[in-house]
Design a protein around this nucleic acid. Structure first.
Length: 154
DNA sequence: GCCAACGTTGGC
DNA sequence: GCCAACGTTGGC
């Protein structure tokens, strides 16, 4: 069982959008970064816990909790000529991009990026590092416990 | 809207 | 393999 932080632009899929989807589940398609892909393909397991992070918005930060609800499988959008995620180099036999499904667990009182930065216990978090752009990052179990114990208010 | 940081591409 | 150019991310 691992812990992750996954970024989503709320204008794309917000924590409330996720809560209202069928099965409260979304296919995490469209990741086109190799490191993020490798995390999904090689390390994520069904049941892994996810901090659902709102990025590129007025108050960036953790907006909810989710879980990985499927193993990684080929991202369908790479084969779709009409998708902005179409990849001409990907084939059905050798897919290049993968995604998992992510299921809503709960919405929380948002924990802003500024709030996260206030805690020395979290200073190692990838999302707090300068210049960080990776949309999927592992979360240390100690960091996860700290966040749940001290920062999550339902 | 600005711009720093980063990943990718492609010429050589 | 180097590296400049380019496109994207995402906080502010």
């Amino acid at each position: 069982m691992r812990y992750w932080l996954m970024k989503s632009e709320p204008s794309d899929v917000s924590i409330d959008d996720l809560a209202n989807l069928p099965d409260q589940t979304v296919a995490w398609y469209g990741v086109r970064n190799y490191q993020a892909r490798n995390f999904m393909r090689d390390q994520m397991c069904k049941g892994d816990a996810v901090l659902f992070y709102h990025s590129n918005c007025a108050v960036p930060g953790i907006a909810g909790i989710a879980r990985v609800s499927s193993p990684a499988y080929p991202d369908a959008t790479q084969f779709d000529r009409n998708s902005k995620y179409f990849d001409p180099k990907a084939t059905q036999e050798t897919p290049r991009w993968f995604n998992v499904d992510v299921q809503w667990v709960k919405k929380i009182e948002p924990i802003s990026l500024a709030e996260l930065r206030r805690h020395p216990q979290l200073e190692g978090m990838r999302v707090l590092q300068r210049g960080n752009r990776l949309s999927i990052t592992p979360v240390d179990p100690a960091e996860w416990r700290f966040i749940l114990k001290h920062l999550v208010r339902d």
